[in-house]
């Protein structure tokens, strides 16, 4: 059973990630009053890219992309999707937190070897932005772990299943709000689409990728969307008892995120940092103090 889960979980995540990418293009097009590409377009693109020629700037350039995608695949195994969670007992939230930062780190190492000015700027922005949203995110996660007195994400989900969603419970309400405020930054969508910024820095870290590199990076992007939303659903929307409901919750969160993406322009990096270190951080800290008071 476990082996089936280990194989099934990444495949499901991959399919949903690609579906999200396609859906994003379709919905954005409709908001812009265009018809938009078919929903399978990203899959078609990935298959086409795999057959195309690519250039490499060295070993780290190649290994960084592979490492980044591999880490995203591993991370899927730690996240409960409904009842599916193959590696539930191997370190819990702290491992998830750490593995989450490996994917951008791999891309950064890979892009770094390309010696491209746009890639350099993109990586610098990505790491700065990550530090920006990690400050409130860590406070939020610590509040959740302190409230439920466990480091295991499976336990957090099951406790919410028994009582109520963390987002609607009193001590974690503010933490949930803060999480919603930083979710676009975690997913890298507008107004925080600073890293890729196609019009400014030609896709940033991805600028040197072509052919199979770009295909792998696209898959990684899809998985990234999946992970960011799945973590939120597990921590604040109570996870789910079975996979379909879990994916439904994820879909709702993603579509809401797309509306924000369509409505807001891109911030500059320092504006983004100022926003992230001000309101979400403040709210998250107040949330954590409430959790501590209730715990006492």
């Amino acid at each position: 059973m476990r082996i089936v889960e280990v194989i099934l979980a990444p495949i499901l995540a991959l399919l949903i990630g690609m579906f999200f990418l396609g859906l994003a293009r379709k919905i954005m097009a409709r908001i812009h009053w265009r018809y938009g590409p078919p929903i399978t377009q990203p899959v078609i693109d990935v298959i086409r890219l795999f057959s195309q020629k690519s250039v490499s700037h060295g070993n780290m350039f190649t290994l960084g992309v592979l490492f980044s995608l591999a880490c995203s695949l591993v991370l899927i195994l730690f996240l409960p999707m409904g009842k599916i969670c193959p590696l539930s007992s191997s370190g819990g939230m702290l491992v998830i937190l750490y593995v989450m930062l490996l994917a951008p780190f791999g891309i950064a190492l890979s892009g770094g070897e390309a010696a491209n000015p746009n890639a350099s700027i993109g990586i610098s922005r990505k790491l700065t932005l990550a530090l920006g949203y990690e400050v409130p995110l860590l406070v939020i996660l610590l509040a959740v772990m302190t409230h439920y007195k466990t480091l295991s994400i499976v336990n957090i989900v099951s406790m919410q299943q028994n009582t109520s969603w963390a987002l609607t419970s009193l001590p974690l309400f503010l933490s949930g709000i803060a999480y919603i405020l930083i979710l676009p930054a975690i997913l890298g969508i507008r107004p925080f689409e600073i890293t890729q910024a196609a019009q400014e820095i030609s896709s940033g870290p991805m600028v040197e990728y072509g052919g199979s590199f770009l295909a792998l990076a696209t898959i990684q992007h899809g998985l990234n969307l999946f992970i960011g939303i799945a973590l939120f659903v597990n921590l604040f929307l109570g996870g789910a008892g079975n996979p379909p409901i879990f994916f439904l919750k994820m879909l709702v969160v993603f579509v809401l995120g797309l509306f924000i993406n369509a409505a807001l322009p891109r911030l500059r990096i320092e504006q983004a940092m100022r926003y992230l270190w001000r309101w979400p951080t403040l709210i998250a800290f107040i949330g954590m103090i409430i959790v501590l008071i209730i715990r006492r």
Binding site: F50, S51, Q52, K53, S54, V55, S56, H57, G58, T62, L66, G211, S212, F213, A215, L216
Partner: peptide
């Protein structure tokens, strides 16, 4: 990755 065409250095 290996299944795709080889990258040109």
């Amino acid at each position: 990755f290996k299944a795709g065409p080889k990258a040109v250095p």
